[in-house]
Nucleic acid binder design. Structure first.
Length: 153
DNA sequence: GCCAACGTTGGC
DNA sequence: GCCAACGTTGGC
């Protein structure tokens, strides 16, 4: 079992949006970074733990606990001409971009970015590293446990 | 809106 | 294969 932190812009898909979806499950569309894609393709397993993170918003932070609910499969938005995620270079017979389904298990309080930054136990959390831009990052078990404890989840 | 940091592109 | 230019991310 692995653990992950996955960023979503709440203007696009918030934790509330995900909770409102059938089975509280949403396809994680729009990943257009090879490293993040490879995590989904090569390392994620159904049942892996996910920290649902809101980015590019007023109060960035972890807002929910979720699980990986599917293996990786082609992201349909790459073939949709009208989607902002459309990739004209990707062919249906050789899809370039993948996604997984993510099921929210629990909405939590917002464990904010500043709050995480001031916690010495989270010093090595990848998402806190300077210059980090990856939308999907692995989370070490000790960090996972620590964060869930802080969230009372 | 600004800008640092990073990833991708493309000429050579 | 190098690297400058460009585009994007994402906190502030």
């Amino acid at each position: 079992m692995n653990y992950w932190l996955m960023k979503s812009e709440p203007d696009e898909v918030s934790v509330d949006d995900a909770l409102a979806a059938p089975d509280a499950t949403v396809p994680w569309t729009g990943v257009r970074n090879y490293q993040a894609r490879n995590f989904m393709r090569d390392a994620m397993r159904v049942g892996d733990g996910v920290l649902f993170y809101h980015s590019s918003c007023a109060e960035p932070g972890v807002v929910g606990v979720a699980r990986v609910a599917s293996t990786a499969y082609p992201d349909p938005t790459q073939f949709d001409r009208k989607s902002p995620y459309h990739d004209p270079a990707s062919k249906p017979e050789a899809p370039r971009w993948l996604l997984v389904d993510v099921q929210v298990l629990k909405k939590t309080r917002n464990l904010t970015l500043p709050e995480m930054r001031e916690d010495p136990a989270l010093e090595d959390l990848l998402v806190l590293k300077k210059g980090n831009r990856l939308s999907i990052t692995p989370v070490e078990p000790r960090h996972w446990k620590h964060i869930l404890k802080k969230l009372g989840a």
